[in-house]
Protein backbone atom coordinates (compact mmCIF):
# COMPACT_ATOMS: atom_id res chain seq x y z
CA UNK A 1 0.00 0.00 0.00
CA UNK A 2 1.29 3.44 -0.81
CA UNK A 3 1.36 6.28 1.73
CA UNK A 4 -1.73 7.93 0.31
CA UNK A 5 -3.84 4.79 0.66
CA UNK A 6 -2.53 4.21 4.19
CA UNK A 7 -3.38 7.79 5.12
CA UNK A 8 -6.87 7.42 3.71
CA UNK A 9 -7.43 4.18 5.63
CA UNK A 10 -6.13 5.80 8.82
CA UNK A 11 -8.37 8.84 8.31
CA UNK A 12 -11.28 6.47 7.84
CA UNK A 13 -10.43 4.73 11.12
CA UNK A 14 -10.26 8.06 12.97
CA UNK A 15 -13.59 9.21 11.55
CA UNK A 16 -15.14 5.81 12.27
CA UNK A 17 -15.00 6.36 16.03
CA UNK A 18 -17.18 9.53 16.26
CA UNK A 19 -19.43 8.13 13.53
CA UNK A 20 -19.92 4.97 15.58
CA UNK A 21 -20.81 7.01 18.69
CA UNK A 22 -23.16 9.19 16.64
CA UNK A 23 -24.96 6.25 15.04
CA UNK A 24 -25.23 4.43 18.36
CA UNK A 25 -26.93 7.33 20.12
CA UNK A 26 -28.98 8.23 17.08
CA UNK A 27 -30.45 4.73 17.04
CA UNK A 28 -30.82 4.43 20.81
CA UNK A 29 -32.59 7.78 21.08
CA UNK A 30 -34.78 6.97 18.05
CA UNK A 31 -33.57 9.97 16.13
CA UNK A 32 -33.76 12.46 19.00
CA UNK A 33 -30.01 12.78 19.13
CA UNK A 34 -27.81 14.17 16.41
CA UNK A 35 -29.87 16.78 14.63
CA UNK A 36 -27.68 19.25 12.67
CA UNK A 37 -28.26 22.14 15.10
CA UNK A 38 -27.35 19.90 18.02
CA UNK A 39 -24.17 18.73 16.31
CA UNK A 40 -23.12 22.34 15.64
CA UNK A 41 -23.70 23.04 19.32
CA UNK A 42 -21.65 19.96 20.16
CA UNK A 43 -18.87 21.17 17.94
CA UNK A 44 -18.89 24.58 19.60
CA UNK A 45 -18.81 22.98 23.02
CA UNK A 46 -15.72 21.02 22.00
CA UNK A 47 -13.58 24.09 21.25
CA UNK A 48 -12.67 25.25 24.77
CA UNK A 49 -12.10 21.74 26.20
CA UNK A 50 -9.85 20.92 23.24
CA UNK A 51 -7.72 23.97 23.97
CA UNK A 52 -7.51 22.89 27.62
CA UNK A 53 -6.44 19.44 26.41
CA UNK A 54 -3.71 21.02 24.27
CA UNK A 55 -2.66 23.06 27.28
CA UNK A 56 -2.35 19.96 29.43
CA UNK A 57 -0.99 17.71 26.72
CA UNK A 58 2.75 18.58 26.87
CA UNK A 59 2.85 18.33 30.65
CA UNK A 60 0.90 15.09 30.66
CA UNK A 61 3.19 13.53 28.06
CA UNK A 62 6.12 14.36 30.31
CA UNK A 63 4.38 12.78 33.30
CA UNK A 64 3.24 15.98 34.99
CA UNK A 65 -0.42 16.07 35.96
CA UNK A 66 -1.43 19.73 36.16
CA UNK A 67 -4.62 19.62 38.21
CA UNK A 68 -4.56 23.39 38.59
CA UNK A 69 -5.44 23.92 34.90
CA UNK A 70 -9.19 24.08 35.62
CA UNK A 71 -8.64 26.59 38.42
CA UNK A 72 -6.50 28.74 36.11
CA UNK A 73 -9.30 28.75 33.52
CA UNK A 74 -11.97 29.60 36.09
CA UNK A 75 -9.97 32.30 37.85
CA UNK A 76 -8.89 33.94 34.57
CA UNK A 77 -12.46 34.00 33.31
CA UNK A 78 -13.66 35.22 36.69
CA UNK A 79 -11.17 38.11 36.71
CA UNK A 80 -12.30 39.16 33.23
CA UNK A 81 -15.96 38.99 34.18
CA UNK A 82 -15.31 40.90 37.38
CA UNK A 83 -13.53 43.64 35.43
CA UNK A 84 -16.57 43.90 33.17
CA UNK A 85 -18.81 44.10 36.22
CA UNK A 86 -16.67 46.65 38.03
CA UNK A 87 -15.43 48.88 35.26
CA UNK A 88 -17.53 47.99 32.24
CA UNK A 89 -14.38 47.33 30.22
CA UNK A 90 -14.70 46.74 26.48
CA UNK A 91 -13.99 43.63 24.48
CA UNK A 92 -10.31 44.27 23.80
CA UNK A 93 -9.32 44.94 27.43
CA UNK A 94 -11.48 41.97 28.42
CA UNK A 95 -9.52 39.70 26.09
CA UNK A 96 -6.25 41.07 27.45
CA UNK A 97 -7.30 40.57 31.07
CA UNK A 98 -8.54 37.00 30.57
CA UNK A 99 -5.66 35.78 28.40
CA UNK A 100 -3.12 37.77 30.43
CA UNK A 101 -4.43 36.39 33.71
CA UNK A 102 -4.32 32.85 32.29
CA UNK A 103 -0.74 33.39 31.15
CA UNK A 104 0.35 34.76 34.51
CA UNK A 105 -1.50 32.22 36.64
CA UNK A 106 -0.37 29.25 34.56
CA UNK A 107 3.23 30.48 34.58
CA UNK A 108 3.14 30.95 38.34
CA UNK A 109 1.88 27.38 38.62
CA UNK A 110 4.88 26.21 36.58
CA UNK A 111 7.32 28.33 38.55
CA UNK A 112 5.95 26.88 41.77
CA UNK A 113 6.58 23.39 40.44
CA UNK A 114 10.13 24.21 39.40
CA UNK A 115 11.01 26.11 42.56
CA UNK A 116 9.40 23.86 45.13
CA UNK A 117 10.78 20.66 43.57
CA UNK A 118 7.89 18.59 44.87
CA UNK A 119 5.86 16.25 42.65
CA UNK A 120 3.84 18.15 40.05
CA UNK A 121 0.53 16.72 41.25
CA UNK A 122 1.18 17.96 44.80
CA UNK A 123 2.13 21.46 43.64
CA UNK A 124 -0.85 21.51 41.29
CA UNK A 125 -3.25 20.58 44.10
CA UNK A 126 -1.89 23.37 46.30
CA UNK A 127 -2.05 25.91 43.49
CA UNK A 128 -5.54 24.70 42.59
CA UNK A 129 -6.76 25.34 46.14
CA UNK A 130 -5.19 28.82 46.20
CA UNK A 131 -6.73 29.74 42.85
CA UNK A 132 -10.13 28.41 43.88
CA UNK A 133 -10.00 30.56 47.00
CA UNK A 134 -9.04 33.59 44.90
CA UNK A 135 -11.95 32.79 42.58
CA UNK A 136 -14.24 32.74 45.58
CA UNK A 137 -12.94 36.12 46.69
CA UNK A 138 -13.33 37.55 43.20
CA UNK A 139 -16.76 36.08 42.59
CA UNK A 140 -19.98 38.00 42.87
CA UNK A 141 -22.30 35.12 43.49
CA UNK A 142 -22.66 31.43 42.63
CA UNK A 143 -22.04 32.57 39.12
CA UNK A 144 -20.40 35.58 37.51
CA UNK A 145 -22.13 36.39 34.25
CA UNK A 146 -21.41 38.59 31.26
CA UNK A 147 -23.50 39.21 28.20
CA UNK A 148 -24.03 41.49 25.26
CA UNK A 149 -21.09 42.61 23.11
CA UNK A 150 -18.57 41.18 25.48
CA UNK A 151 -19.52 37.63 24.48
CA UNK A 152 -18.94 38.30 20.77
CA UNK A 153 -15.95 35.97 20.62
CA UNK A 154 -18.15 33.07 21.68
CA UNK A 155 -20.18 33.29 18.47
CA UNK A 156 -19.49 31.83 15.06
CA UNK A 157 -17.21 32.49 13.24
CA UNK A 158 -15.08 34.24 15.88
CA UNK A 159 -14.80 31.25 18.20
CA UNK A 160 -13.82 29.12 15.25
CA UNK A 161 -11.17 31.61 14.09
CA UNK A 162 -9.64 31.76 17.58
CA UNK A 163 -9.64 27.99 17.79
CA UNK A 164 -8.07 27.66 14.33
CA UNK A 165 -5.28 30.09 15.25
CA UNK A 166 -4.52 28.20 18.44
CA UNK A 167 -4.71 24.86 16.63
CA UNK A 168 -2.16 26.01 14.04
CA UNK A 169 0.03 27.52 16.75
CA UNK A 170 0.04 24.29 18.73
CA UNK A 171 0.63 22.23 15.60
CA UNK A 172 3.71 24.33 14.78
CA UNK A 173 4.96 24.28 18.38
CA UNK A 174 4.46 20.56 18.80
CA UNK A 175 5.47 19.30 15.36
CA UNK A 176 7.98 21.76 13.97
CA UNK A 177 9.97 23.32 16.78
CA UNK A 178 12.87 22.26 18.97
CA UNK A 179 10.52 22.56 21.92
CA UNK A 180 8.16 19.98 20.39
CA UNK A 181 11.01 17.52 19.83
CA UNK A 182 12.25 18.06 23.37
CA UNK A 183 8.76 17.40 24.74
CA UNK A 184 8.56 14.13 22.83
CA UNK A 185 12.06 13.18 23.96
CA UNK A 186 11.09 13.88 27.58
CA UNK A 187 7.85 11.96 27.06
CA UNK A 188 9.83 8.86 26.10
CA UNK A 189 12.29 9.13 28.96
CA UNK A 190 13.34 12.20 30.92
CA UNK A 191 16.64 10.57 31.87
CA UNK A 192 17.62 9.62 28.32
CA UNK A 193 16.54 13.05 27.08
CA UNK A 194 18.67 14.69 29.77
CA UNK A 195 21.68 12.53 28.88
CA UNK A 196 21.15 13.43 25.23
CA UNK A 197 21.52 17.10 26.12
CA UNK A 198 17.92 18.23 26.47
CA UNK A 199 17.47 20.89 29.14
CA UNK A 200 14.56 19.20 30.90
CA UNK A 201 14.01 22.03 33.40
CA UNK A 202 13.81 24.62 30.62
CA UNK A 203 11.51 22.33 28.63
CA UNK A 204 9.27 21.91 31.68
CA UNK A 205 9.10 25.68 32.17
CA UNK A 206 8.22 26.27 28.50
CA UNK A 207 5.58 23.53 28.78
CA UNK A 208 3.95 25.49 31.60
CA UNK A 209 4.18 28.80 29.72
CA UNK A 210 2.65 27.27 26.56
CA UNK A 211 0.03 25.63 28.74
CA UNK A 212 -0.69 28.97 30.42
CA UNK A 213 -1.25 30.69 27.08
CA UNK A 214 -3.66 27.99 25.93
CA UNK A 215 -5.47 28.01 29.26
CA UNK A 216 -5.90 31.78 28.97
CA UNK A 217 -7.42 31.47 25.50
CA UNK A 218 -9.54 28.51 26.64
CA UNK A 219 -10.85 30.67 29.49
CA UNK A 220 -11.71 33.38 26.98
CA UNK A 221 -13.59 30.95 24.74
CA UNK A 222 -15.31 29.27 27.66
CA UNK A 223 -16.72 32.42 29.22
CA UNK A 224 -17.54 33.93 25.81
CA UNK A 225 -19.50 30.85 24.74
CA UNK A 226 -21.17 30.15 28.08
CA UNK A 227 -21.68 33.78 29.14
CA UNK A 228 -20.90 32.94 32.73
CA UNK A 229 -18.40 31.28 34.99
CA UNK A 230 -19.29 29.35 38.11
CA UNK A 231 -17.63 29.98 41.42
CA UNK A 232 -15.54 26.89 42.09
CA UNK A 233 -15.97 25.03 45.34
CA UNK A 234 -15.04 21.58 46.65
CA UNK A 235 -12.24 21.42 44.01
CA UNK A 236 -14.95 21.62 41.35
CA UNK A 237 -12.44 23.26 39.00
CA UNK A 238 -10.94 19.81 38.49
CA UNK A 239 -14.25 18.70 36.91
CA UNK A 240 -13.36 20.82 33.90
CA UNK A 241 -10.12 19.00 33.27
CA UNK A 242 -11.15 15.39 33.74
CA UNK A 243 -13.07 15.22 30.48
CA UNK A 244 -10.21 17.06 28.79
CA UNK A 245 -7.79 14.46 30.14
CA UNK A 246 -9.96 11.72 28.74
CA UNK A 247 -9.86 13.59 25.43
CA UNK A 248 -6.05 13.41 25.56
CA UNK A 249 -6.13 9.68 26.28
CA UNK A 250 -8.40 9.10 23.29
CA UNK A 251 -6.03 11.29 21.25
CA UNK A 252 -3.08 9.19 22.35
CA UNK A 253 -4.96 6.02 21.44
CA UNK A 254 -5.66 7.46 17.98
CA UNK A 255 -2.11 8.73 17.55
CA UNK A 256 -1.19 5.63 15.54
CA UNK A 257 -3.71 6.70 12.88
CA UNK A 258 -3.50 10.49 12.94
CA UNK A 259 -1.71 13.49 14.35
CA UNK A 260 -2.09 13.79 18.12
CA UNK A 261 -3.76 17.21 17.77
CA UNK A 262 -6.52 15.82 15.59
CA UNK A 263 -6.85 12.81 17.87
CA UNK A 264 -7.31 15.08 20.89
CA UNK A 265 -9.97 17.10 19.07
CA UNK A 266 -11.79 13.90 18.08
CA UNK A 267 -11.46 12.65 21.67
CA UNK A 268 -13.06 15.79 23.06
CA UNK A 269 -15.77 15.73 20.43
CA UNK A 270 -16.59 12.15 21.38
CA UNK A 271 -16.67 13.07 25.07
CA UNK A 272 -19.17 15.84 24.32
CA UNK A 273 -21.27 13.54 22.16
CA UNK A 274 -21.27 11.01 25.00
CA UNK A 275 -22.63 13.58 27.45
CA UNK A 276 -25.34 14.88 25.16
CA UNK A 277 -26.11 11.38 23.86
CA UNK A 278 -26.62 10.02 27.36
CA UNK A 279 -28.77 13.04 28.19
CA UNK A 280 -30.90 12.36 25.14
CA UNK A 281 -31.45 8.84 26.48
CA UNK A 282 -32.82 10.41 29.67
CA UNK A 283 -30.10 9.14 32.00
CA UNK A 284 -29.64 10.94 35.32
CA UNK A 285 -26.39 12.82 36.01
CA UNK A 286 -24.88 10.14 38.24
CA UNK A 287 -25.69 7.36 35.77
CA UNK A 288 -24.25 9.48 32.96
CA UNK A 289 -20.87 9.56 34.71
CA UNK A 290 -20.94 5.80 35.20
CA UNK A 291 -21.98 5.02 31.65
CA UNK A 292 -19.54 7.49 30.09
CA UNK A 293 -16.74 5.91 32.17
CA UNK A 294 -17.65 2.42 30.97
CA UNK A 295 -18.09 3.59 27.41
CA UNK A 296 -14.74 5.30 27.41
CA UNK A 297 -13.04 2.21 28.79
CA UNK A 298 -14.56 0.14 25.98
CA UNK A 299 -13.29 2.61 23.39
CA UNK A 300 -9.81 2.64 24.94
CA UNK A 301 -9.65 -1.15 25.28
CA UNK A 302 -10.73 -1.55 21.67
CA UNK A 303 -8.40 1.13 20.33
CA UNK A 304 -5.34 -0.07 22.23
CA UNK A 305 -5.98 -3.76 21.58
CA UNK A 306 -7.46 -3.86 18.08
CA UNK A 307 -4.13 -4.88 16.56
CA UNK A 308 -3.85 -7.72 19.07
CA UNK A 309 -7.38 -8.85 18.19
CA UNK A 310 -6.58 -8.75 14.46
CA UNK A 311 -3.31 -10.63 15.08
CA UNK A 312 -5.19 -13.22 17.14
CA UNK A 313 -7.74 -13.77 14.37
CA UNK A 314 -5.01 -13.95 11.72
CA UNK A 315 -3.00 -16.42 13.80
CA UNK A 316 -6.01 -18.66 14.21
CA UNK A 317 -6.68 -18.47 10.48
CA UNK A 318 -3.09 -19.31 9.75
CA UNK A 319 -3.11 -22.20 12.21
CA UNK A 320 -6.26 -23.62 10.60
CA UNK A 321 -4.73 -23.31 7.13
CA UNK A 322 -1.54 -25.02 8.31
CA UNK A 323 -3.53 -27.86 9.85
CA UNK A 324 -5.53 -28.19 6.64
CA UNK A 325 -2.34 -28.19 4.55
CA UNK A 326 -0.74 -30.88 6.75
CA UNK A 327 -3.76 -33.14 6.64
Amino acid sequence: MNTRTTNLINAGKVILLPVFVYVLFFLCSRGNFGKPASMIMNFKQTLAPTLISYAMCCNMLCGRMDLSAGAVVMLSAMLGAKMVYLYGIGLFPFVLVVVGAGLVLGTISGMMYLLLKVPAIVTALGVCMIYETLSNLASISWVTAINGEITTLGRFPYCLIIFAIMFILFAILFNDTKFGYHVRACASSQQIAKNAGVDTVKTAFICYVVSALFLGVAALLKISIQGSIDTPMYMSSTNIIFNCMLGIYVGLALEQYCNLLIGIFVGNFIMNMLTTGLLSLGLSASLQDTVSGIFLMIIMIFTYNNQRVIDFINNRKMKKELIKANM
Binding site: N42, S284, A285
Partner: peptide, 19 residues
Protein backbone atom coordinates in the same frame (compact mmCIF):
# COMPACT_ATOMS: atom_id res chain seq x y z
CA UNK B 1 -33.74 15.08 31.60
CA UNK B 2 -32.36 15.95 34.97
CA UNK B 3 -29.03 17.29 36.15
CA UNK B 4 -27.84 17.85 39.69
CA UNK B 5 -24.33 19.16 40.05
CA UNK B 6 -22.26 22.30 39.94
CA UNK B 7 -21.76 22.90 36.21
CA UNK B 8 -25.05 24.51 35.40
CA UNK B 9 -24.18 26.36 32.22
CA UNK B 10 -22.61 23.24 30.77
CA UNK B 11 -25.73 21.32 31.74
CA UNK B 12 -27.93 23.82 29.90
CA UNK B 13 -25.67 23.60 26.83
CA UNK B 14 -25.74 19.80 26.98
CA UNK B 15 -29.52 19.69 27.23
CA UNK B 16 -29.95 22.06 24.31
CA UNK B 17 -27.46 20.08 22.25
CA UNK B 18 -29.05 16.75 23.08
CA UNK B 19 -32.64 17.64 22.26
Amino acid sequence: GEYRGLEFTKAVEDFLASD
